[in-house]
């Protein structure tokens, strides 16, 4: 029966407009990164066109593949909090906003299969969004004819982007739980924005490596100096946060009263 639940979850996902909107939205990240690279390539040209080149200059980098890949990893760090949270809030919260949770929970199906199937759907969706970042990133980089490309660099950078995205995904069960608890989209989206700000803020302090929502930005190089490797303690914090989120969401689906 889990297979049927997963199939129905994918059907709901395929038909949703938000699926395609997030795919479009996420492409903005690498395109924006490409714009920075383009400005860096010739700052005078950007000034002539009325574009302010300060941010690009601030990066203090040259327009090449290593810089662009680092930028893509940073964007993935932000996207994993914002767009992945939007995806999770939608997949879990829509059942309450559309009034369908009450139908879903009275079926001859173990209730826990629904959050399990939804986590799988979110994983696939977030994975596809990450693939969009990487693909558009490559296309933009090739179009700009950025120097400094090597297969080793590309493989390592893609691995890093995937890891940042996966770490971001591991924080989504908490967002899912907030969606089930708050019975809709708004609470999880508010929570995502709050944790994004807190994560960036605490990332600049010594507490960052212990706060789940700082660990991903730190690793992606958004909040303060980039952490090259993840501390074992940080990994444990993320794993525990994920496990707690999964358990709380399953509990919410299985035992909580539904008045919606």
């Amino acid at each position: 029966m889990l297979g049927q639940v997963i199939a129905t979850e994918f059907l709901k996902l395929r038909r949703a407009k938000i699926t395609w909107l997030t795919a479009l939205g996420i492409a903005i990240g690498p395109l924006l990164g490409g714009l920075f690279m383009w400005i860096l390539q010739e700052p005078g040209r950007a000034e002539r066109l009325g574009l302010i080149g300060q941010k690009a200059q601030f990066l203090g980098q040259t327009a090449d593949w290593p810089t662009y890949f680092a930028l893509l990893a940073q964007m993935t760090g932000i996207v994993s909090v914002v767009l992945f949270s939007l995806v999770t809030a939608y997949v879990f919260g829509r059942e309450y906003s559309d009034g369908t949770a009450k139908n879903m929970l009275v079926l001859p199906v173990t209730r826990a299969w629904f959050p399990v199937a939804k986590f799988l759907v979110v994983l696939v969706w977030c994975g596809l969004l990450t693939v969009v970042i990487i693909t558009v990133g490559f296309l933009v980089g090739l179009a700009l004819k950025l120097p400094g490309f090597s297969a080793t660099l590309a493989a390592a950078s893609v691995g890093e982007i995937l890891l940042v995205a996966f770490l971001g995904y591991l924080l989504m069960p908490v967002v899912a739980w907030i969606a089930a608890l708050g019975k809709g989209y708004l609470a999880p989206l508010g929570f995502a924005l709050l944790t994004l700000l807190l994560g960036m803020g605490l990332g600049a302090t010594g507490w960052g490596k212990w706060f789940p929502w700082s660990i991903v930005p730190l690793f992606a190089g958004i909040a303060g100096p980039r952490t090259e490797t993840l501390a074992a303690g940080s990994l444990v914090v993320i794993a525990l946060t994920c496990a707690a989120g999964v358990a709380a969401t399953i509990w919410q689906f299985t035992y909580a009263d539904n008045h919606q």
């Binding site: 059907l11 709901k12 038909r15 949703a16 407009k17 559309d98 009034g99 369908t100 009450k102 139908n103 009275v106």
Partner: peptide
């Protein structure tokens, strides 16, 4: 059928 009719609007 519990309270208001509900269905997936995109389906």
């Amino acid at each position: 059928l519990v309270e208001a009719a509900a269905a997936y609007p995109d389906l």
